[in-house]
Design a protein around this nucleic acid. Sequence first.
RNA 1: GCCGGGUUAGCUCAGCUGGUAGAGCAACCGCCUUGUAAGCGGUAGGUCGUCGGUUCGAGUCCGACACCCGGCACCA
Length: 667
Amino acid sequence: MSDLYAITLPDGSVREVPAGTTPGDIAAAIGPGLAKAALAARVNGELRDLNRPLEGDSALALVTARDEADALELVRHDYAHVLAEAVQALFPGTQITFGPSTDDGFYYDFAPKDRPFTEEDLPAIEAEMRRIIAADKPLVREVWPREQLIARWRAAGETFKAEWAAELPEGEELTVYRSGHDWLDMCRGPHLASTGKLDPQAFKLTRVSGAYWRGDQKNAMLSRIYGTGWLTKKQLDAHLFRLEEAAKRDHRKIGQEMDLFHLQSEAQGSVFWHPKGFVLWRQLEAYMRRRLDAAGYEEVKTPQLMDARQWEQSGHWGKYRENMFVVPDEIPSTEEEGPILSGKAELMALKPMNCPAHILIFKQGIKSYRDLPIRMAEFGCCHRNEPHGALHGIMRVRQFTQDDAHIFVREDQLIEEIKAFCDLLDSVYRDLGFEQYAIKLALRPEKRFGSEEMWDKAEQTLRDAVAAAGRATEAYGWEELPGEGAFYAPKLEFHLTDAIGRTWQVGTIQADTVLPERLDASYVGEDGQRHRPVMLHRAILGTFERFIGILIEHHAGRFPAWLAPVQAVVATIVSDADDYALSVVEKLRAAGIRAEADLRNEKINFKVREHSVAKVPNLLVIGKREAEEGTVALRPLGADARQEVLALDAAIARLVREGTPPDLARA
RNA sequence: GCCGGGUUAGCUCAGCUGGUAGAGCAACCGCCUUGUAAGCGGUAGGUCGUCGGUUCGAGUCCGACACCCGGCACCA
């Protein structure tokens, strides 16, 4: 046993240090600047405390603010600890539970003594956090024996921590971090050397919420405090600015400003589409229909209401009923007194999915292996009885229309069909302005039908197909999500991100053998025998509601011309130009352009501003000159936009070109 | 469904510790015929989310319910 360890630094140099030396000591030996800048260390690749002694020959790299990912993770974790310490100082009797870092900050879950926290509590807590940071309390790692640690938590009344300490896996080293002398939290670490390493101006507590202990609805409701935390105040300010900018893109705000849709309490979770919003919908639907037609799909339309027995057979009644709207098959009584419904009627249900109906179409007549694949599409309107707390603008609603389709295939066609779907989906997202999306594989859930073998096979098929399409990569945020699949099949999920970083699943494809089995769908094979088809459930937009919501936020309401509700406004400067302006609008409309006239008795400044705010992509300004010369002044949307005076025909040609949907432009 | 917050004119928002509602924009009317992001003046508009309670008196205090917002859980 040597008393000297050989420490290899990133530049390849090796230092011999005595046992007991810490990374912090080495930083100090290299230079005071580094000692000050060092936040933590990577020892043999593992992130560690600066003041934790090295345990042998090691590769050592010191982590500073330049290693941004590591540094942010460290400070956020520390902010969470300081938050917990501050809360316990201000609210004695509050229990601490768990507080990790997040994508832009941190949170900590507390079990409050008498009442949950409110946002009014936050300023005082922030002030206390700043005091703790100013006190520059050292954060020291200690390893505790399990029983002693549990006893410590019990003695302090920390039942959640005690429960957790008792359940941490056997053989795991239980560590606590001590802040100064008086406060400790159980934590794997690592932490900064002291609270003073944090910038007291680089964090902000943002909101409070409830959260279940261990994320389980059956457990106690804790009180969570969220914060955002950064290395510097400049970073924090930039983040807060981004949030403000993102809030301006909120689809609910823009939807109202642009008069696209509204929601009201009499139809909660269902969207009232206004004329302008429905133009968007129709453009999107027409586009999707063309793409599906071209890709060999056939469109169908199926019933809204089906008998409960049908849903029993499909399995929805058993596994999905809590999400369904059930309707008695009965004529309500019109008697003034007495019950409206007898309560004895047979039940029907609004469809939450289109799949059973599509199988029923598939089952009409005999299908041959030569008929497959059959790609059956429906812009299907579905109802799901979502929990009230889940509703969110038009992104999460109770009535929605999917760009749904079910592809009935032989097993040997599976990979090819899934791959073709991935390519189609990619092309659609690009046409709609999305370069980036994430792909995830949702694996078998707890509530499910089918054998383990069937799930093994279905999951592997999806894995193979995405790999075959070359998209199971980090660029696509590829990951597998255990337990997240549908009750009948695993699914590939395609996620887009909204204005403030929330991600929404839009597209999906699911490889299902359960429903064809339950509803007895079959085809006659080459061998003359009956075989089960595999059914691919798939959607690209997911739902029109959610997708349009994301489109609004993605484009901040400034839609590409082919989607814009109003593509051009013809605005006059003087009333002498009214007749000419109306004839221009007429010609634009004849050319298929969604154009409106603005003949109001207002200054052109006013009109320019108003139509700019309304995000109309093109303004055609017409004054005396244009009316006399038969031209228009074409002013594209944007403060810095240049204006061109064009002959009317040339302007129309340009607007037609700009307004052509991307698939038609390619043709 | 759970925790916290909210709901006042078409929109955005004021309204202190209870004394019977206010601004800007929009709308409407009038003036201005206007040249590239808000021209000027005037008029009208609200049973303050709903129901109940406390009080001489409730937008304001209390309770229930509905819906919305932020999360949690659930999910396209």
